[in-house]
Amino acid sequence: MDFLYYAYAAFYQFADAFSFLVLSGIGLAVIFGMMGVINLAHGEFIMCGAYVTVLSARAGLPLPFAMVCGTLSSGLVGLVLERLIIRRLYQRLFDSIVATWAISIIATQGMLIVAGPSLEGIKTPFGSFELGGISFSVYRAMLPAVALLLLGALYWLFVRTRFGIHSRAAMQDADMAKALGVSTNAIYSKTFGLGAALAGLTGALYAPTMTAVPTMGSAFIVQSFVTVVVSGADVMLGLAPSAAALGLIQALLTGFHGQLIGQIGLLVTVILVVRIMPTGISGFFLRGSGSK
């Protein structure tokens, strides 16, 4: 029985690292992985989701509704920014680095000016459970399931629905998609908004377990980029294995050698994975099937 407890404890660590990587990356997977916009403001979309969640929960909204508010408001901000700024950059995506970096510093400092240096947090719901003398947070134990659910939903959305197919078509060959009657502008808008909303959802999900400060996005940004880039070209296919591989190595190294080696190990793993699979994990999977 003790063995089972320890096995669960180890699994919990892996699942915790996995869900952090998946949720960090999931919005970016859409905006960067699919659209190619190098979104350095990804962390600020997460921050926006977290802030709105905290504020609406404190205003008396039940937590699930507060999280929906956080998600939607971040998506809305994404839509507006897409319309005003990002849309003009699709022909020169490298410039999106400058634009999103600018948005990022404006958002961080603007939030500091508007909302002050910190918000009073909200409590993590659901309490804890105990196994073999070790107690775990129920809420955090549920996050991996949420992450998997989201991955599944996203895969379904982009592979099975009409929107998803149009969206992928527009990303792959905008002119051809247009010729076939797809309104690419609307598709870009919706896709960007979706990515921003997903980032907001990440913020909403982590809001009860982290401190809400204007700079909180920086806690996610590195993890999000490494997970998404390592996923490779077909990000919907690659995100889960990428997060699993990186999460496993990070959890093992952190468990055996401490947080420093865990952090450094994660980054070294990224370098090694890219070296072994220069087109990312999905590229490696797809190589056999003849797709590029």
Partner: peptide
Amino acid sequence: GANQASYYEQQASANL
């Protein structure tokens, strides 16, 4: 720092 401040909520929710 702000990142590490998240420890307190996380240890409380794990009922440390």
